[in-house]
Design a protein around this nucleic acid. Structure first.
Lengths: 209, 209, 209, 209
DNA sequence: CATGAATGAGGGTTCATTCAT
DNA sequence: GATGAATGAACCCTCATTCAT
């Protein structure tokens, strides 16, 4: 080995290679979603991607590089969907925002578990994790800005909002309840919080109960 | 050994043993809080408890028995605190309830990560996991009952409330913000949701924005 | 891994792998022959096969699968040799049969200990153990049929004969005596028993001394 | 530790201690009979003897000392029974000898498994194993002497006879057949061999078929 | 480049043995 | 002397990673 160790996936030039990377990422998303980072094995990911373990390692030199790539890919989709929501309408009502967020959550539900598995748990991925979190908080801030007018410091609310969104992501783990009822409740909760944020922003102070 | 495998920790008979069990549980709480169930190792838990690995296994015959014991201990404290809150005052206002919940969360913050690590992630502990979840949801339901009068079906709200509490548990992972600001925001969020629940319960229908 | 655990050794695809499997089986035969199933360690077997422990487990996923493979391999050779003896001559005399059995025992003496260690002792191997025993008893029955004419029920004799053969297998553990003398005595013992079986079979009743 | 390590059980002076040793030996006989030497655990033996593990180690400082003691105790009974058979009658017929041996085997059947587990398998006990074997072979030789007259060299036959006896000990492991039929066959086999020995001894040469 | 066999550190667990109480 | 908690070497097995083919 004379070349320095790579810390990011190799970008394959040929179509064949790009397909394979795609298959690997899809398989990895599934497997990381089903188990924790540690319980997921490179062998199983390779098998689900119908790839030899050696090929997997050609593109993703270590397990955490693969996890970071999965997170980056997932994060990109999530950020993109949030951008669409923010840019959709200059006058976004709290109710629209709440429904928009739930819609995003539902569309990404397949990949949902990945974030729960990778973003939270103690694994320190090479880069992705902190970066994605900051980007997500940024989007939440933009969303809050759309609701009121003044661009004041709203960091706490953005963080809180991100956690609420994550809580809703985690909801379907409760198999006890029918999903529609739960979803309706989720929208209500989001709307309440966004309305509050919009109101206090307009008036410039906390609203009394 | 031909005796059937124990599924619960051994009750030590001497004082020395009880101290050791205590040390092990504390160490396990820390380690399970820092890493996922799989990433946590029995060796590290033993080391942090200043115990030989064999001693750990004398009291907790398998890793999941240990995890269940940790969860049970944590769960008991949490449930007890919630009971106190519910029973404290027959006329609990949403604001009081919100502040009470945050207070509980803060007092249990040390053990906080354990629930995030063990309760959610896919590990099926011998008994604890489902039982504790149901008990917690039950407490949330009681809390909601205290706010309004009618004992109608409020399962979705109890589940939602539990997830909100868990979201607040997870908050301090964001080292970016000062905690007091974050806590104030958390109380606000809880209060909004509890007020909504109380109002819709009194009127028997959803409140319009 | 989520795939169900294999219960049979993996068939290697390359020559290198086949050699290694061979080396492992040979080493396992030796070690299981020297110690009991429990006392034999996978680490020692790997070392004697000049293989890493991981390689051993690639082909034989558990210790009992390995033991079963050893037994199957040994059993196949033994059954084959017995078939040859039975089919060799339509009119087999007791003396020929006795000498034939001893010859088989001597040719398989290298692998001898394995059957003593694995076949008897309480370990219930995945499949091999009961199957092999029945097959061996069947062969003994065929041998007995060759000696007389009537195909009457001779199960006890087949079982007894198998145990006599096993006893002779065990003989060389007595290092005290020269082997030729011991072997001669063994042939005599077998011949006496086979003659008795042949005689009582012809006459249809036990022969008096 | 200033005293040299003991290699034999401590002889207890008081009644209490003698009872305890007795209970331990009984428990050990059972456990060693059920499993191989390695699979049997000191903890289980102590539990079955209703003794603390520490007490067990007070009398038997290591596992192999305990095993040797068990073997010695078992061997003493076996040797005693053989002596009775040999001394019973100055003119012992082969048939009587055969039936006497089977009778001994049956009476000791409870402890039978111990010899199979301890005597054969590779464990080198501190002393017992070789000594007992030699004593047993000696008794077999005496038995053979009783049948004929001349005290010529009959070592091979004694060894062979011991192995036949061991083969019969092992018989009940075949659960497939009713024991009485199997026992009858065993007596026949022993009688045939003893008759042969008596005859060749009297005539001074091998008998032709 | 692709493949999958090879490697070995490390994880959960057991158990003979010791020793403080 | 009795008790049983403590100890740690050793066991079976897994899996990230490497490398010969």
């Amino acid at each position: 080995m004379s070349s320095p160790p790579r810390s990011s996936p190799l970008a394959p030039k040929r179509q064949r290679g790009r397909d394979r990377v795609e298959a690997i990422l899809t398989a990895a998303t599934t497997v990381f979603g089903e188990k924790s980072y540690e319980a997921a094995t490179m062998t199983e990911i390779a098998a689900r991607a119908s790839t030899a373990i050696g090929s997997l390692y050609r593109f993703f030199p270590t397990k955490d590089v693969l996890a970071a790539a999965v997170l980056e890919r997932y994060g990109a989709r999530l950020l993109h969907a949030l951008d669409e929501l923010v840019d959709r309408d200059p006058t976004l009502s709290p109710r629209d925002a709440a429904e928009g967020l739930l819609d995003i959550i539902q569309r990404l539900r397949t990949e949902r578990s990945v974030v729960l598995s990778l973003l939270d748990s103690g694994v320190t991925l090479p880069d992705g994790t902190g970066t994605l979190r900051k980007a997500l908080i940024g989007r939440m801030g933009q969303l809050l800005s759309r609701l009121g007018g003044s661009p004041g410091p709203h960091d706490e609310r953005a963080v809180m909002l991100l956690h609420l969104v994550k809580a809703i992501f985690a909801l379907p783990q409760d198999h006890s309840l029918p999903r529609p009822a739960q979803d309706k409740e989720a929208v209500t909760m989001l709307r309440l919080y966004l309305e509050h944020a919009a109101a206090s922003r307009r008036s410039g102070s906390e609203v009394a109960p």
